[in-house]
Amino acid sequence: MDLLNAIVAFLNFVFVPGVAYGSQLALGALGVTLIYGILRFSNFAHGDTMAFGAMATILMTWWLQSLGVSLGPLPTALLALPVGIAATALLVLATDRMVYRFYREQKAAPVILVIVSMGVMFMMNGLVRFIIGVDDQRFADGTRFIISARDFKEMTGLREGLTIKSTAALTVVVAIIVVIALFWFLNKTRTGKSMRAFSDNEDLALLSGISPERVVAITWIIVAALATIAGTLYGLDKSFKPFTYFQLLLPIFAAAIVGGLGNPVGAIAGGFVVAFSEVTITYAWKKVAGYVLPAWEPDGLVQLLSTDYKFAVSFAILIVVLLFRPTGLFKGKAV
């Protein structure tokens, strides 16, 4: 019985949050890795692209809510997502046209593009703050829980409750659908194949008549969709605050690099590696330990590191992987 309680506590505080967070990171890392694969630079503006996408979705959600539209148990934000994606796609395409294309034609060094993306990051950050402000915004509606702690306890008679927020479940479901769709697109469609060809060998792809501008435009649209979905899911699951998206940049990059930059499978794996390490290392294991080893009563919280050090965890994983396996867990592109 105690073992069951321990398992439930583990699921409740480590596994479920880890899966939801991992899915969000994976979606973010997919965007970073696609940009890296096709446009060949690390996009520092990705966190703020996510914030912009989430913001556009939130504004649309508020409008729908004011009209009385709702999806019943599901959050209205799902209905607003296509509009958010379209707005973000327009923004990144315009950015590419006005900013990045110039450097692409010049064949500028990747590090120059990174600095350029820093400028874009500033502008997007300012834009989001200008439109929606810096405060927390709530836009989640619909059912809050699939299983609440009380129901679970009544159902099973265990002392520990298991809570599954509907946003967490939704995150995972949406992430799975998006990833399947993305891989189908990259592997089965003609456009997707031309993207992969462009990523593998630019010159050869050009020779075989693939239009680079078209590949780049499609990449940006996919990245806008991924960023908006990731940003909205993160906002639904936690809360929307422009600054947190900027801070997501580090775990997202850690995920993409750990998996191997430019490798989509790696980005997903990396997202979960980073998320689970962050959650397990910063979780206070006292409760679980109390059930497993009732005789041992720890004084402290049995927490390896305080929650504020979660950046240190992403960072440590990043360094270890880079030192021992510089191309990432899955083979990424080494430029």
Partner: peptide, 24 residues
């Protein structure tokens, strides 16, 4: 000692991380 051998954008991410850790 740890990060300088890395490529430029890896170094960027590594230093970004170090700064956050120092603040934490």
């Amino acid at each position: 000692k740890t990060a300088l051998g890395l490529r430029s954008d890896y170094l960027a991410i590594a230093t970004l991380g170090i700064a956050e850790i120092i603040i934490a």
